[in-house]
C-alpha cells in the first residue's frame, strides 16, 4: 500500500502544469485583463459571461455523450438554430405586426420548450442515430448531411425572414437574474440543472458506464452484452433534446432569431469538449472538464474584447488555443502508452 501511494502521489511540476494548463491559463489571463481594465470584474460583465457560457455549455453537454462514444454531431449548431426559430415563432406577441402565425395566441413558454425538446429528440436524434448505426454512415458525414437538411428546413420555416417581437415573459426571463441575485442569470440555473442531470447520468447510472465502455472499446462493449445500437441512438436523442433546449435559451437571450442562429456552434462545442478532456480517442470526459473547456473559450473572447483586440485577431487566438489544447490532450495519451 505504501508503495502505491509514493508512486502515484509523487509531485511532478511539469505534469502538474500540463494537467492544469487550462485553469492556469484562465486565472492568469483574467488577472492580467482585470488589472488592465477593472470593469472586467464588474457584476454586469460576469453575468454576461455566465449567460453566454450557459447556452454554449448546454450544446457542449449535448454533444459530449456522442463524442465519448466515438461519434460526432455536426448538425448541432443548425439544430439549435431551428429550435430557436420554432420557439420564437410560437412565442411572438399577439400584437406583433409581421407575426408568422397571426391567429396563434402564444402558449406557455415552458410547454413550448419541452415539446420542442421531445420533438427534436424523436426526429433529428433518432434519424441521426439510425443513420450512424443501421446505415453505417460515418457519423462525421451522416450528421453533416443532417446539418444542411436542418438548415434547409429552417430557411423554409422562417421564409428566410428574421423573427422578432417575442413575448415579454420569454425575453425578460432570459435576461433576468435568479431570485434577483445580479450575478446569476436565469439561463445559468437551467444549465446548472442540466449539468447536474448529466453528471448523474454519466457517473451514477448504467447508461453512463455503458457510454464510457463503448467509447473505450466498442467491440468489447458488444461482447459484454451492451446494445451499442440502442445506446448510440439514445445518445443522439439526448443530444438533440439539449440542442433544442439551447435553441430555446438562445432565441430568448438574443431577443429574436433568424435561420442563421447558432451557425457553426457545433465546432465550438466539440472544441470545448475536447479541450475539457473528452478524449479524441473516445471513452473519457467529465462534466466538470467540459465546463472548463467551454469557459476557456468564453473567457478568452471577453478578455480580448476588453483588451480592444480586433475581432480578426480573436479568431486567430481561438484557433491557436484549440490546436494547443488538443496537442496537450494527445500528449497525455501518448505518454501513457
Amino acid at each position: 500500500m505504501s508503495e502505491k501511494v509514493s508512486k502515484e502521489k509523487k509531485f511532478d511540476i511539469v505534469q502538474f502544469l500540463v494537467n492544469n494548463a487550462l485553469i492556469i491559463l484562465i486565472v492568469s489571463s483574467a488577472i492580467f485583463v482585470g488589472l488592465q481594465n477593472p470593469r472586467f470584474f464588474s457584476m454586469a460583465n460576469i453575468k454576461n459571461l455566465l449567460a453566454n457560457t450557459s447556452v454554449r455549455m448546454v450544446i457542449a453537454l449535448g454533444i459530449s455523450g456522442v463524442l465519448i462514444m466515438r461519434n460526432n454531431d455536426l448538425s448541432a449548431g443548425r439544430q439549435v438554430g431551428l429550435a430557436g426559430c420554432i420557439c420564437a415563432t410560437l412565442l411572438q406577441r399577439a400584437d406583433y405586426a409581421s407575426k408568422v402565425y397571426p391567429n396563434l395566441t402564444p402558449p406557455n413558454m415552458w410547454l413550448v420548450c419541452i415539446l420542442v425538446m421531445i420533438g427534436f429528440a424523436l426526429t433529428f436524434g433518432v434519424i441521426n442515430g439510425l443513420v450512424v448505426t443501421k446505415l453505417h454512415v460515418p457519423a462525421f458525414i451522416g450528421t453533416y448531411g443532417m446539418q444542411t437538411i436542418v438548415y434547409g428546413i429552417a430557411l423554409i420555416f422562417t421564409g428566410a425572414q428574421p423573427i422578432g417581437g417575442l413575448i415579454n415573459e420569454y425575453t425578460e426571463w432570459a435576461s433576468g437574474s435568479f431570485l434577483g441575485i445580479q450575478l446569476i442569470p436565469n439561463l445559468a440555473i437551467i444549465t446548472a440543472i442540466v449539468m447536474l442531470v448529466m453528471w448523474f447520468l454519466y457517473n451514477h447510472t448504467p447508461y453512463g458506464k455503458k457510454m464510457y465502455a463503448i467509447g473505450g472499446n466498442p467491440d468489447a462493449a458488444e461482447v459484454s452484452g451492451i446494445n451499442t445500437t440502442r445506446m448510440t441512438i439514445v445518445s443522439y436523442m439526448i443530444a438533440a433534446a439539449l440542442f433544442a433546449l439551447a435553441g430555446f435559451m438562445l432565441a430568448a437571450k438574443a431577443g429574436g432569431t433568424s435561420s442563421n442562429l447558432a451557425n457553426g456552434y457545433e465546432l465550438f462545442a466539440i472544441a470545448g469538449c475536447t479541450i475539457g478532456g473528452v478524449s479524441v480517442n473516445g471513452g473519457t470526459g467529465k462534466v466538470s472538464g467540459i465546463l472548463m473547456g467551454v469557459l476557456v473559450f468564453e473567457i478568452l473572447k471577453i478578455e480580448m474584447t476588453f483588451l480592444g483586440i480586433d475581432t480578426a485577431w480573436t479568431y486567430i487566438v481561438q484557433g491557436i488555443v484549440i490546436v494547443v489544447a488538443i496537442a496537450l490532450d494527445i500528449r497525455k495519451y501518448i505518454a501513457k502508452k
Binding site: 464510457y212 465502455a213 473505450g216 472499446n217 467491440d219 468489447a220 478524449s279 473519457t284
Partner: peptide, 17 residues
C-alpha cells in the same frame, strides 16, 4: 481487440456486463 476496456479502471472492467 474485444476483451478489455483499456482506458477504464479494473472496477469498470469487472462491472460492465
Amino acid at each position: 481487440g474485444n476483451g478489455i476496456f483499456g482506458v477504464l479502471s479494473i472496477s469498470d472492467n469487472v462491472a460492465v456486463a
